[in-house]
Write a protein that binds this DNA or RNA. Sequence first.
RNA 1: GGUCGGUUAACCGAGUGGCUAGGUAGCGGUCUGCAAAACCGUUUACGGCGGUUCGAAUCCGCCACCGACCUCCA
Length: 489
Amino acid sequence: MKNNLVIYNSLSRKKEPFNPLHPPFVGLYVCGPTVYSDAHLGHARPAIVFDLLFRYLTHLDYKVRYVRNITDVGHLENDADEGEDKIEKKARLEHLEPMEVVQKYLNNYLKNMEQLNILHPSIEPRASGHIIEQQQLIKTILEKGYAYEINGSVYFDVLKYNKQYNYGKLSGRVLEDLQTSTRSLEGQDEKQNSFDFALWKKATPEHLMRWPSPWSEGFPGWHLECSVMSTKYLGETFDIHGGGMDLQFPHHECEIAQSTAAMGKESVRYWMHNNMITINGQKMARSLGNFITLDQLFSGEHTMLQQSYSPMTIRFFILQAHYRSTVDFSNEALQAAEKGLQKLMKASETLSKLKPSLTSTVDIATLKKKCYEAMDDDLNSSVLLSILFEGVKYINSVNDGSERLTSGDLKSLTDLFSTFVFDILGLKDENSGKENVKLTDDLMKIIINLRQDAKNRKEWALSDHIREELKKAGITLKDLKDGAEWEVE
RNA sequence: GGUCGGUUAACCGAGUGGCUAGGUAGCGGUCUGCAAAACCGUUUACGGCGGUUCGAAUCCGCCACCGACCUCCA
């Protein structure tokens, strides 16, 4: 199995040829959402980026097992109000059970993902379903001597780990720098060093989410679930781990430390990080309160939105930028994306109606080659789209008669669009269904009006003929006192 | 403060040591009863200052500004 795919590995900070460990199988793990509020535009980005990767690898005939976790345990929040669990905080506010909150927002997230035409991962494991495995990993790390227990909590000993391994290799941190620069936060008295992180945390009396363990009734640390669930389903070593750039430190750094401490080796071969979506140049995040939820985008109900934007417009908007660049939100940019998407969709419809010629005046084989080159170059969907728009130009030109395509080339171009626009980029024509309903409605109005004119002129034969023909087409006309109703059988 | 990244035309956004990215918007034209669509042509680019080079927006240095991470976060 061969491919020309090159991906940027955050670990080496270089583009590297992608060679899976056990071809034709590929293991892909991506950090999913913490489900304690509605999904926002920021959540759409990694979902779309790694959906693109999943789709492309699948297109290249790899057998991909794609694991995307659901964080439903909620993790410690270092707010002024001493480490309150996010999910519980929300639960108390809304008088719901923590798991009820989880279910509500998980449902919403999954609904949004479907709207964005994001394929379901192969496995969507939940942190709460892997408490035992997480405890096992803690035990192993304790046995290896890279963690210590204090007052029922267990912390990872970063200093000791760093003597043998390199803590900070992924994010470019140097431990000595961290020692001086890490802010001193309250409630960290237990830790030997400020940069140590929790593997197990003893629950305070008001903490609702808790599980029994050898150390205390409590809950697992922030970073544990990913180490556990990735290796459980993909093996001790697996191909790709993805997530947002903001997770690089400390989350992914800690994952590396945990896995390495437990197994003596690293799990991940290629680290991939998508960049952020900005709004007025600033990161869009729940914590900053400047986020727009996907439901709001789709409905247009937000003070910053001039109109609603369809899921495919959002998808197209995100795909227009390369995943490692920031992408800046604005109404203007989304409206441009909406128009661009419409142009692409319209062209692909036109394509299906083109008539073949005996000769071709444009080079489809080269176009196809360039599409693969764009995707192979670290999933450059931005360049891919620019090439597909060359194809759009060809299509419209052929339609206008200024260019020609043989039936063979026509088929190639149709395959190309089907493959790249729909299968790989995962775009779909949202208007076809809606338009048809509206179109039928409009057509029926025209027919009914014409028939009314005929009736007004007492041309009953014509009027009856129209009604009979419609009946044959499965449409029943019902004449009312004024006007007419119609219905489909 | 530390680490890392960015600054591209009206807006979004690729890319590259010499060759039109693309989308949206604008302008001119073709087509058209009109309009729309489509097609053709087209305008203001590579933050600033130096350096390397035959040639830099692209490499190097300095400066300015912006951002991310360092704390849950996509």
